[in-house]
């Protein structure tokens, strides 16, 4: 199966984190915010100009750019 990253999700779609492919510091920050293996994420909406995106995970909402979302691999 092709690998999928979080920026490919459309609004309302859900996924589970498989891995984070990012430089150490960004990876650490994303994980601190709760993106750990297996956690469920859902894209809530996109900003008016299509980027950044709002996702919900662990019961709260977070926004991040598509560039960062691309680092989050889903399964």
């Amino acid at each position: 199966m092709m690998q999928m990253t979080m920026d490919e999700l459309t609004v309302g779609q859900k996924g589970a984190v498989k891995a984070i492919n990012a430089p150490k510091q960004l990876k650490r920050r994303l994980m601190d915010m709760g993106f750990t293996k297996g956690v469920g994420v859902e894209v809530v909406k996109l900003a008016p100009m299509g980027d950044p995106m709002e996702v919900s995970l662990r019961g709260y909402h977070l926004c991040l750019r598509k560039a960062e979302a691309r680092a989050i691999e889903l399964r």
């Binding site: 960004l26 915010m33 709002e54 909402h61 926004c63 991040l64 960062e68």
Partner: peptide, 10 residues
Amino acid sequence: ETNAFILELP
């Protein structure tokens, strides 16, 4: 260079 933009939406 691009950078991270990670922000909680409280």
